[in-house]
């Protein structure tokens, strides 16, 4: 359990997140890709906090802000998905070319 191994694991999670976000068609699955990326980011952040930042509180705060971003992104993302579905009955990206008003 050294810094390098932790960063590799975080990179792996981030890579899966990128693959997921790019390959999936449905909105909600793309958001899961984003969450997976944030998961990797939090793991990398805390590993560096433990190994390189001697546990400075600002490191923890970064992780908490990352969680806040996750929550806000999920809330707004779902709200958009509902709105688009109500207007366009579309739940996959193919059907929505432009977000016309």
């Amino acid at each position: 359990m050294s810094l390098e191994i932790l960063l590799v694991v975080a990179a792996a999670l981030f890579g899966i997140g990128v693959y997921g976000a790019l390959s999936q068609q449905s909105f909600v699955m793309i958001m899961m890709g984003l969450e997976m990326m944030l998961n990797g980011a939090i793991l990398a952040g805390v590993s560096l906090w433990y190994f390189s930042a001697a546990g400075s509180p600002k490191g923890q705060l970064l992780a908490i802000v990352a969680m806040a971003v996750m929550a806000v992104e999920a809330a707004i993302g779902f709200a958009l998905v509902i709105n688009i579905y109500r207007v366009r009955k579309a739940d996959i990206t193919e059907k929505v070319k432009a977000l016309r008003g």
Partner: peptide, 9 residues
């Protein structure tokens, strides 16, 4: 995905 993984790793 693989590119991101290798770069960050």
């Amino acid at each position: 995905g693989v590119g991101a993984f290798l770069g960050l790793a």
